[in-house]
């Protein structure tokens, strides 16, 4: 995943590097050809982007209306355990798991958990991170040094280990999971917001606003923030993909979403010991995770190309 959180910002590496990083990874999707053969490639891209948005809409709608769908209960066995997929019955169309529960139902309800946790954690982390980054970037000086030191310290923990350390102390629940994941998102957005705030602050319209007597709060919220939103927002899908991966990793290790609530990572963990004889228990959730993360990454690349100023300058 270009999505990984630790990536746009080194544990101590310079912010310049972080920016370069963001630019180059995104540009990886860009067509930089020596010969002008751009049109064909563009078409290729748009198919993937089209697919990505379709898949995201589909999975979000499914997750949203999960309880209205005629699905079996995700915690109750519907048939014999470990039935293979595509066997006629609607509930067992994706097979059943170790306890005979419908994998279809668990996938859909698992999507709800994964997407919800991913989205809430990303938004919360982005909110706090952006606020810190704007303060650091606008006021600079000591407060900037302090905020940068704190983000560096937070980035010094490898993400998964930080989550594991938290879950060793706090009993895993959706709430603690969201807090832990949001904590991972904060430094990324602090760095992005800080760099962008510094570049916007030197613009003439900020000077004009200041000369007209605008207070700091007005300048930050009404002049700078609106300009930051598109660029930062474009990072959300990629961060959300990273959050879904992180939640999946934790659930895979048995320290994420507590059972019986289904989560994709937990489903893979349930199926991994029977993978030799019943591979569908691993493959089905694996395909769903892959497609969702892939779609979020594609959507993120696409949005960043449109909205991230640093990619065009």
């Amino acid at each position: 995943m270009s999505a990984d959180l630790s990536k746009p910002a080194a544990a101590g590496g310079g912010a310049a590097v972080a920016e370069k990083q963001a630019v180059t990874t995104a540009a990886g999707g860009e067509v930089t050809s020596a010969e002008p053969r751009v049109p064909t490639v563009r078409k290729q891209r748009s198919v993937l982007v089209y697919f990505a948005y379709t898949w995201l809409v589909l999975i979000i709608v499914l997750a949203a209306i999960a309880s209205l769908l005629p699905l079996a209960k995700y915690s109750i066995p519907v048939d014999a355990p470990r039935i293979g997929p595509f066997g006629g019955d609607f509930d067992t169309v994706l097979g059943t798991d170790n306890q005979g529960r419908s994998i279809l139902s668990r996938i859909v309800f698992g999507a709800r958990v994964s997407l919800l946790v991913g989205a809430v954690a990303s938004l919360a982390g982005a909110l706090v991170g952006t606020a810190l980054g704007m303060i650091a970037g606008y006021f600079l000086g000591r407060i900037d040094a302090l905020i940068r030191l704190l983000t560096d310290a937070l980035l010094a923990f490898p993400p998964l280990l930080l989550l594991l350390a938290l879950s060793s102390i706090l009993t895993p629940s959706v709430k603690t999971l969201i807090i832990g994941l949001a904590l991972l998102v904060v430094p990324t957005f602090t760095r992005l917001a800080r760099a962008n705030t510094i570049s916007w602050s030197s613009r003439d319209f900020i000077m004009a606003a200041r000369n007209m007597g605008a207070r700091r709060r007005r300048i930050l919220l009404r002049e700078i923030l609106p300009n930051l939103l598109p660029g930062l927002g474009a990072y959300l899908p990629i961060v959300m993909a990273a959050m879904i991966v992180a939640e999946g990793s934790l659930s895979f290790l048995g320290m994420g979403i507590p059972p019986p609530t289904p989560s994709w990572g937990g489903m893979i963990a349930d199926g991994k010991d029977a993978v030799a004889d019943h591979p569908h228990m691993v493959m089905v959730p694996a395909v769903f995770i892959f497609l969702t993360v892939f779609a979020l990454n594609q959507a993120g690349d696409h949005l960043r190309h449109r909205f991230d100023r640093t990619l065009h300058d």
Binding site: A286, I289, F290
Partner: peptide
């Protein structure tokens, strides 16, 4: 180039806990 770049987008979306069990299989 497009094929390799496409493959790399696919790889980018396969976290270790997904790749592991699939590789075991």
């Amino acid at each position: 180039d497009r094929a390799i770049t496409g493959l790399s987008s696919v790889f980018l979306s396969v976290p270790a806990f997904v790749a592991g069990p699939v590789l075991v299989y």
